[in-house]
């Protein structure tokens, strides 16, 4: 069963409602979707239901409540079988999910490391053996991580389709960190094998990202 929460970016109470229902949905193993009325999917649903108030809650496609519910009220609205696999739940958040938050945060660390490395290594002035390490700390560590965090957060909201969650983003993140660090360390230490392993791990993280994002862009029913 799917829980849909219709929200607005200018609604001060919507974030609180999302927190309550995210926890309730996770506890009961429900699919949880947040739809913004500023986006076409959310607007269409709000128009169909003739909604005048947000946040509004739909359970199984039926409008069940408006406003912010307490955790106890949320429980009373949920009389349903427990779902089998919590880690397979697909959701999209109004606020950053923890994985996307970490992608964005660590991207800034890689950015600072890359800039420091390029400055200290005089890589802005000349090519040298260590330059690829710092260049890729910027392109992979900063730019790729920013795309991971922002695209995973925004694309589900733009399309109204859920993204693959559970352990997938954490696997993607682990591979990306090991890959970027291994790649840079390989260049700095002059270890070619480490460079190759780092590149492969980073590529695998990108493949997982594509696997997660593809159904967001091209859902089966489309």
């Amino acid at each position: 069963m799917k829980i849909e929460l219709i929200v607005s970016g200018v609604c001060p109470f919507c974030l609180e409602a999302e927190k309550v229902w995210r926890v309730a949905a996770a506890d009961h193993g429900f699919e949880f979707v947040v739809l913004d009325i500023a986006q076409p999917e959310g607007a269409a649903l709000a128009q169909r239901l003739n909604l005048q108030t947000v946040p509004a809650l739909l359970i199984g496609g039926v409008l069940r409540a408006v406003g912010v519910q307490s955790p106890e009220e949320a429980l009373t609205l949920l009389h349903s079988p427990r779902q089998e696999a919590h880690d397979r739940m697909q959701q999209m958040g109004f606020a950053f999910s923890p994985d996307n938050r970490w992608f964005i945060l660590t991207a800034q660390v890689y950015l600072m490391l890359a800039g420091l490395g390029l400055l200290m290594n005089s890589s802005f002035l000349s090519d040298n053996a260590a330059r690829p390490a710092f260049m890729h700390l910027f392109t992979l560590g900063f730019m790729l991580f920013m795309i991971y965090g922002l695209a995973s957060h925004m694309l589900p909201r733009f399309t109204g389709n859920p993204i693959r969650e559970g352990s997938w983003p954490w696997l993607q993140m682990g591979l990306a960190h090991c890959g970027v660090i291994g790649y840079a360390a390989g260049y700095l230490a002059g270890r070619h094998t480490l460079i190759v392993v780092g590149a492969v791990l980073t590529w695998l993280s990108l493949a997982i990202f594509a696997f997660r994002v593809w159904p967001v862009l091209w859902p089966e029913e489309a």
């Binding site: 492969v200 590529w203 990108l206 994002v213």
Partner: peptide
């Protein structure tokens, strides 16, 4: 966005092959 993903995977693959 979809084509970007394809290019990303292709560009990475080319680099890995080149490294090997």
């Amino acid at each position: 966005v979809s084509i970007a993903l394809v290019y990303g995977l292709l560009g990475g693959l080319i680099a890995i092959v080149r490294l090997i």
